[in-house]
């Protein structure tokens, strides 16, 4: 951003918070270098372990607070998989639970001030989305063989329309991983960047900073909601794709 140097007073670098930095100094980022990505993903793992392993350690019949949250998360995702993907989708529940719980914790950890949001990176979300895409495609082909192609051939539509619809369906099928990944990363990036922009205003306004601060509070509350909803949406879309793979006949 060349203009920043020129204006001087207003120093806003909304994208700096997303820079991947090595944890222990140095500039080179090899594939194995421990970076802030490593740190915040490790924290997400720690949170998962705290909630779902340490929290349920008591195996209490009448659950403690943490245990009931863990059970709530379990029941929430389980019901979602069962409702959307169907009874035979329950087999894949651990995978979806893994994705959901990781995204939830990565999103929420990213909301801590000065934190690094791993899910705001296209690389991370695209990896997950492509994994889901290839998984459901291969699963669909293995389970249904050529019948999987009936997903694109809508037998309910008039015959003349079917080739056009098939083309649209094929395109939308291959756009799936793109929208799937960019939705999550874009939401996270946008929210954090907006907060950072308002924070930049607050820095130069002096007493008037109260207005940007109020705006930050409101946006932050929205971001808390969005963090959860995006994780939910990612998981539920995974369930929808899974259902399409298991039952391609509309």
């Amino acid at each position: 951003m060349a203009s920043d140097q020129a204006t001087g007073g207003l120093q806003i670098h909304p994208m700096d918070q997303f820079i991947v930095k090595p944890l222990f100094g140095g500039d080179a980022i090899h594939w194995y270098t421990p970076t802030n990505v490593t740190l915040w993903m490790a924290l997400a793992v720690v949170c998962v372990v705290l909630l779902l392993v340490i929290g349920t350690r008591g195996r209490a019949l009448v659950p403690s607070r943490v245990q009931s949250v863990a059970e709530l998360a379990y029941g929430f995702v389980y019901k979602m998989v069962e409702d959307v993907a169907g009874k035979d989708g329950v087999k894949y529940f651990p995978y979806i639970m893994t994705l959901f719980i990781f995204i939830v914790f990565a999103n929420f950890l990213g909301l801590i001030p000065m934190a690094f949001t791993t899910t705001s990176h296209i690389a991370v979300t695209a990896t997950m989305a492509l994994a889901v895409f290839f998984f459901v495609t291969i699963l669909g082909v293995v389970k249904n063989g050529v019948g999987f192609l009936s997903l694109f051939w809508i037998s309910a539509a008039p015959l003349a329309l079917r080739p056009i619809l098939a083309l649209i369906e094929v395109i939308s099928y291959f756009v799936r991983p793109v929208s799937h990944s960019i939705r999550l990363a874009g939401n996270m990036m946008a929210g954090h960047a907006v907060i950072k922009v308002f924070a930049g205003f607050a820095g130069v306004l002096g007493v008037g900073a109260i207005f940007p601060l109020a705006a930050i509070t409101a946006v932050y509350a929205l971001e808390v909601l969005v963090s959860f909803i995006q994780a939910y949406v990612f998981a539920i879309l995974t369930c929808v794709y899974l259902r399409d793979a298991l039952h391609p006949h509309h």
């Binding site: 929208s179 960019i182 939401n187 909803i229 949406v233």
Partner: peptide, 20 residues
Amino acid sequence: TATMFIGIAFAEALGIFSFL
């Protein structure tokens, strides 16, 4: 409710594209 969230996700994705 789940259907609504899927609908929201699809509608929102296009806005995110323009943001991108």
